[in-house]
Amino acid sequence: MKHMEAFSLGKKFSAPEANEDSLVIMPNRGYAVIDGVTDRNGTRYDGMLSGQFASRTVQAAIETFLLAQGDPGQPDLQYAGGQHFVDYLGRAIHARYQANDAVAAVEADWKLRGGCTVMAAMIIGDRLEVVAVGDSGLRINGDDVLQVLKPLDDVTAIMRRETWRYFEALGRDLATCDQLAALITWQGTRHQAEGAETAAPDVIAEIERRSIEACRAHLPSIPEAEIEALVHGGICFAQGDFQNVTDPVLGYGGLDGFAVPQRYVETRSYALADIETIELFSDGYFKLGDGFGVAAWEQAFRDVEAEDLHKIGRYMSTKGTTEIALTDDRTYLGVRLK
């Protein structure tokens, strides 16, 4: 390793320790960026909210795995392909559920599970083995990019944008638009609190109409029933039905302590001799850096914030930057080998 730069920052201004991203940095062995899924309901394990719990559990498991490589006394921990590695990480999370006496609860209700994505780049002999689940990213030698973004997020982001625009047209201030759009995005149109403005039948009908129409235009190949399920149930009540299942078109993969289908395990293998730079990043970066290093990636972050602070434009998302928090945690790791 010739040079390395790393940066990680949590989204909450008042609680940087709540950062759900994690880094693995083990020179000459491997590297990883892990992004914990934002907790939906305040569930805690090991004293942490569920997303941070999953992220830190996977971080420790990867470190153990990398240290075991080449050790004949630990045959079960030798790299044997992407699915083997992902299954190992899933078992690590499941073991922590067991330690918290939570197995029955998480088996019965996906909303109680911790979750995370992973992008791992591991040095195995003379190869760089890359394994990914979810939407954290990788860039090799400045131009070879791997990042699997899920269309499901476009549905919930469109719903948030349409809700925001609806209330903006009524003259509501930015903070109110953000608050009401978040209620719809997270709870869905059919789970709004009785008496709330977002529960009014005429409001719900219009937001559903706009959201479904916009999703049809943006994602014409997606079955309307899947779009409607997400609009009605939102992130809290519907998104988990699409994770680690292969029947829905909008299905996606995530580490949560249970099986991840092969369809959602991405792998790449490179000759180590061909690698000059390895860059890993979480999806808190909506735009890639123009070059290697923290400075370039932080400039990309500032560019995005300047153009689309609320994330209802080119960089639409399920959350936006507010007075109390950034859109998301963000993490970057750059390793220069030559």
Results as ranks from 00 to 15, higher is better:
residue 5 E to N: 07
residue 10 G to V: 02
residue 10 G to K: 07
residue 12 K to E: 15
residue 13 F to A: 06
residue 18 A to F: 03
residue 23 L to M: 15
residue 26 M to H: 11
residue 37 V to S: 11
residue 42 G to K: 06
residue 48 M to E: 06
residue 59 Q to L: 07
residue 65 F to S: 04
residue 68 A to D: 03
residue 69 Q to E: 10
residue 70 G to T: 00
residue 105 A to R: 09
residue 107 E to Q: 12
residue 110 W to C: 00
residue 110 W to N: 11
residue 116 C to S: 11
residue 121 A to E: 07
residue 123 I to E: 03
residue 124 I to H: 09
residue 129 E to I: 07
residue 132 A to I: 02
residue 133 V to C: 03
residue 133 V to S: 07
residue 136 S to V: 06
residue 142 G to K: 13
residue 145 V to Q: 08
residue 146 L to S: 08
residue 149 L to R: 13
residue 151 P to K: 07
residue 154 D to C: 07
residue 154 D to R: 13
residue 155 V to R: 13
residue 158 I to R: 02
residue 161 R to Y: 05
residue 169 A to S: 14
residue 175 A to F: 12
residue 187 Q to D: 14
residue 190 R to N: 12
residue 206 E to V: 08
residue 214 A to V: 01
residue 216 R to C: 01
residue 226 E to I: 11
residue 226 E to Q: 03
residue 227 I to T: 03
residue 239 Q to E: 15
residue 239 Q to Y: 03
residue 242 F to D: 02
residue 244 N to V: 13
residue 253 G to M: 05
residue 255 L to T: 10
residue 263 R to V: 00
residue 263 R to A: 09
residue 271 A to K: 14
residue 276 E to N: 13
residue 285 Y to D: 00
residue 286 F to W: 06
residue 291 G to I: 00
residue 291 G to D: 06
residue 299 Q to V: 13
residue 300 A to H: 12
residue 304 V to L: 04
residue 309 L to N: 06
residue 309 L to T: 10
residue 310 H to F: 06
residue 312 I to M: 01
residue 321 T to N: 09
residue 324 I to H: 14
residue 327 T to I: 00
residue 328 D to R: 12
residue 330 R to F: 13
residue 334 G to M: 00
residue 336 R to K: 11
